[in-house]
Design a protein around this nucleic acid. Structure first.
Length: 356
DNA sequence: AAGAATGCCAACCGCAGTGAC
DNA sequence: TGTCACTGCGGTTGGCATTCT
């Protein structure tokens, strides 16, 4: 049985909104609120629009404190980091950028940011190509073994190596002659760069050590591996929050600053089971990798998607992978394990938005 | 200067989740 | 417990603006 249409399509206006329509909608909502029923709203105010259309217009354009265009580099970084972490969950990403809408971010990603990263990837490929030929030449001369597995002597950043997933440590088979980003150093550099400042062309890579509300700090563990801590961002809210739809509410919390709603939200967050870990989150979110082929090659993503490494081991791969992918923004591993910090962290972010 | 190509963004569409009954 | 209506989300499209040839 098909679903009944939400409105009479024949009598509904489509296309761009006129200033009159905007005024009607805006003034009504400002005075009366949405009334919790978007479908009925256009009839109430005499608009020949679908309720969904009204909602979209309000959320994406008429709502107060909406910012359009002019994305800062910090916002770029946040978007990229979150995209790597959680994929195209635009509403969640938007929740981390006050004043931005999911539609705005989605458009920005599709039209500019992705291309920007692609451009960087191409640069990396070219650099990697040059680098690998030099490396090969050196290996020939020294008669050395595998060039793909880094070790402390040839790794520019030996501290980073322990966190490498097997798939990144192993050579990736590829069929065509076009060199892809399967060169370890290139992947590492690219991912580190993606985890750091996306906007800067030149190394050295600058990680977020400065205090922003998203990237508060990162520490160095006893093993020397960098551990990132996101103070305000919950780890993958969609999956981290339970199935009551609270992720959606979290995403909206930035704009709906009604105290009652915040209280409801806090209740949901407080009931959140915090035992989920990164592995589960990423494992259950294979679609989060969609579109990332351009970052590390399709073969890599396929391997990631099916949850197996080149070596055939699955055990620790996701944990390692997530530690690689998550870092700058969404990782609060310790907090997740403790099962409490996420709640505080999530609500801290809400407080932040509310304060703004 | 004009047409074509590309970029950009607002809006639409359809699906999935959720709650009410 | 099942059905239905509503909401929210992500993908896609249409059309205007800008750039290129």
């Amino acid at each position: 049985m098909g679903r009944a249409p939400c409105c009479d399509k024949a009598n509904v206006k489509k296309g761009p909104w006129s200033p009159e329509e905007d005024n009607k909608l805006k003034s009504y909502i400002e005075q009366h609120g949405t009334g919790g029923n978007w479908i009925a709203l256009p009839q109430k105010i005499g608009l020949k629009r679908c309720g969904k259309s009204c909602r979209l217009r309000w959320l994406n354009y008429l709502r107060p404190n909406i910012k359009h265009g002019g994305f800062s580099e910090e916002e770029d970084d946040i978007i990229c980091s979150l995209y790597i972490s959680i994929g195209s969950r635009w509403s969640i990403i938007a929740a981390q950028l006050p004043g931005r809408t999911d539609n705005d971010i989605k458009n920005y990603w599709n039209t500019r940011l992705k291309k920007k990263l692609l451009g960087k990837q191409r640069k990396e490929q070219q650099a990697a190509r040059r680098g690998s030929s030099i490396k090969q030449e050196m290996m020939k001369r020294s008669g050395g073994g595998s060039s793909m597995v880094p070790n402390s002597s040839n790794n520019q950043n030996p501290q980073w190596a322990p966190g490498l997933p097997p798939a990144l440590l192993a050579p990736i088979p590829y069929s065509n002659q076009e060199p892809r980003v399967n060169d370890h150093a290139s992947i590492r550099k690219l991912l580190i760069k993606l985890g750091g400042r996306f906007s800067q062309d030149d190394l050295p890579i600058q990680l977020h050590g400065t205090s922003t509300h998203h990237f508060a700090n990162y520490n160095t563990s006893s093993t020397g591996q960098q551990i990132y801590q996101a103070v305000n961002i919950p780890t993958s809210p969609t999956d981290a929050f339970n199935s009551t739809g609270s992720a959606t509410q979290f995403a909206q919390a930035q704009s709906y600053v009604d105290e009652a709603e915040l209280n409801v939200l806090q209740g949901k967050i407080n009931s959140f089971p915090a035992e989920l870990d990164h592995q589960e989150i990423v494992y259950n979110n294979p679609q989060g990798l969609d579109g990332l082929e351009f970052l590390c090659g399709e073969g890599m993503v396929d391997n990631i998607r099916i949850g197996t490494s080149i070596s055939g081991t699955e055990s620790n791969f996701w944990g390692e992978m997530s530690s690689l992918v998550y870092p700058p923004v969404a990782s609060n591993y310790g907090g997740m394990q403790q099962g409490t910090d996420l709640q505080e962290c999530a609500f801290g972010e809400l407080r932040y938005h509310r304060a703004n």
